[in-house]
Design a protein around this nucleic acid. Structure first.
Lengths: 241, 241
DNA sequence: GGTTTGTTTCAGCCGCGACTGAAACGTCAG
DNA sequence: CTGACGTTTCAGTCGCGGCTGAAACAAACC
């Protein structure tokens, strides 16, 4: 009956730790140094904070050679972070992010195990516009897959059979930058992996974000009739090309 | 892109503020002094903390004479608190709460706008055992209402029409003390109000909890065939009777 | 083996924020 | 008006916890 929820809340309540957790929100595992850079703090500081997060059970760690990879402890942690994000006031007249990396992150990123950012929102809205998914009238946080949508997903190579793990199937996850929903849940995760397998999206070089490839631009145009712009590449990647 | 989720998290991260928020989790409004007593802190301390919660937008305040009533700012706040509660380690071999008030709270309480505690879990399990609701196979956090359930709810005086507000209809809310789901969402809220209107449950005197009345014991036996024990009354209420 | 890199540990400093007692303020009752 | 009550404000103290630089430690590379 005690207020032990204050423990995880206080862990998330430190700005540096919050940034570390946000950097981990894509569900992947990163070495401590990368996270320190991503959170904009020194290595000692990150190490200290990550140790606290580890002890608090919010992250997991596995040692791999001389690297220590940290990742979110589970979906519950990601959902708590999202729930807290929803309590922040919406940035109504926000300016465009200055750095290219920040812009990439706004444009397209992975959110634990599905697609997020402007691309994620655009995809969900395209699917909805084409009648493949509809917002659940009873539940603002869910999509329903229409019969036409079932066929589209099947053609696209995404299984729409209910999940065995009793996981939310087609969740409408409120995008933290766009403040509009994108497709999450088991269906969102499957679609994300399929897009990856098709080469329509790719991890950005060094960055935390995702990149819509030229194949993706053409693919989305063909299958959904939606015009998207390829995400700008980094200097390094452009130089190499 | 900044980590402003740290602000609400830090607000919840203080043990006293967390207790204040837990005391408000039933969704009702309480004067500051009551909350101070409930959280076990001085009036000054509570006032200070409540001012911070107010500024952070986690609670709302309305002045009524010389009282200032505080209540949760909305469902989002309650859901964030619940999400954080899920990150706390489950008390596996917890001892029975010592005080009568704490025991009442464990037995039956309201969780923002629906029934929780042992009674809430027992009710959800009875509804599930009778086949009125089933756990959604695709979504661990949702119930589905069966055709038989539709009839039962209608007979009981609870409307099962989808909600206009696009709110989650039959949510399975993980009970924080029992660690098992109870019925939440719009359907849970309607059922809660109906139970209240029928006089099957009542607010405890002075406490934060709920009381299963004798009418409730008989009613649950008759309509669901489930044997429940009336929640013990307080000394004061017993003396008055 | 020596060096470099990734990461943690340690000790010290420093500042934010929570707690306390006293006092002020507003409202209601007589 | 006076007193009581609920609540907030203020000033002061104090301790927890984050930051920093230096050093230790471990693994990999030459």
């Amino acid at each position: 009956m005690d207020a032990n929820l204050a423990i995880p809340a206080a862990l998330i309540g430190d700005p540096v730790r919050a940034r570390l957790l946000l950097a981990l929100m894509d569900g992947r595992a990163y070495p401590a140094g990368d996270l320190a850079r991503g959170a904009g703090c020194t290595a000692q500081s990150a190490s200290n904070h990550l140790a606290k997060l580890l002890e608090g059970g919010l992250v997991l760690m596995q040692q791999e050679g001389r690297h220590r990879y940290y990742r979110l402890a589970g979906r519950d942690v990601a959902e708590a972070v999202e729930a807290l994000q929803r309590l922040t006031p919406a940035p109504r007249f926000t300016e465009a992010p200055r750095t290219r990396a920040a812009r990439q992150l706004r444009d397209a990123r992975s959110c634990y195990d599905h697609l997020a950012g402007r691309l994620g929102v655009a995809l969900a809205e395209a699917l909805e516009a084409r009648g493949h998914i509809v917002a659940d009238p009873d539940n603002a946080r869910m999509y329903q897959v229409t019969p036409a949508g079932e066929r589209w997903f099947a053609d696209f190579g995404v299984d729409t059979a209910p999940t065995a793990g009793r996981r939310i199937f087609a969740r409408a996850c409120l995008d933290w930058t766009e403040r509009r929903p994108h497709l999450a849940g088991a269906l969102g995760a499957r679609l994300f992996h399929r897009l990856f397998a098709l080469g329509w999206i790719a991890r950005t070089e060094g960055g935390r974000g995702l990149r819509l490839t030229l194949a993706g631009v053409q693919g989305f145009k063909r299958t959904l009739g939606v015009e998207l712009e390829p995400v700008e590449e980094t200097h390094a990647a452009r130089a190499r090309a």
